[in-house]
Amino acid sequence: MENKKGLNTNGNGYILVYSAVLVVVVAFLLAFVYAVLKPKSDANVEMDKKHQILAALNIRGLENDQIADKYAAVIVKDEVIDVNGKVIKDGSSKDKDGFMVDRSDTTNLPVYICKVDGATKYVVPLSGKGLWGPIWGYIAINEDKQTVYGAYFNHESETAGLGALIVEDKFQLEFNGKQLRTSDGKFVGVVKNGTVKDASTQCDGISGATKTSVGVNNMLQDCLKRYKAFLNTK
């Protein structure tokens, strides 16, 4: 290869220095862009999360600029409780306490206390495993803590056209009005497509996506179990 500077570009010293300089330049560049864009992308993530919580409360189809206002109007508190149902953080800021708890945290449990048309609702976050990757969602519970008000699910990489259908309204709306608990102490769940025995606590799974449906079911059982103490208090 031609060489204008007369340096030996194939020498070990040159390669080492060249690589080091390149990496440092790239690192600074990336750090700079990241720092500049971080507030904007954080705001997007926050808005997306609010959007999902509102969807669980059956407030769907909002435009992006309506989300923050609607969230502030509907959500009263984002409490953090422990497994015994004791309130750890009161969440009066609406999006600084429960809202900030990481999805993988199993000891700090967020509960969103909401008011929809004057009635109190509780929204509980869910997270679990689908067939290919993580799935998550929110379930809204009525004030009596016995019935489901609404639910929202999303996924990272479930099969398009099959497991990915859990984000569609058609699947999520099945949860509306279900009993939260079954007679044998379990929670509302999803069964294999076409095998619903008790329509008051079982939702029909997605045909062709049994593994994802089972994942949603396990997620509901695992996550709601942690809220047992909270759900038992009147």
């Binding site: 290869m1 031609e2 060489n3 204008k4 500077k5 570009t9 194939n10 040159y14 390669i15 060249y18 690589s19 390149l22 990496v23 790239v26």
Partner: peptide, 16 residues
């Protein structure tokens, strides 16, 4: 292109 050491050019390309 004239400064890239031939032996590590793929890695340089990848980094960019």
């Amino acid at each position: 292109r004239n400064t890239i050491p031939n032996r590590v050019r793929i890695i340089v390309q990848l980094v960019v």
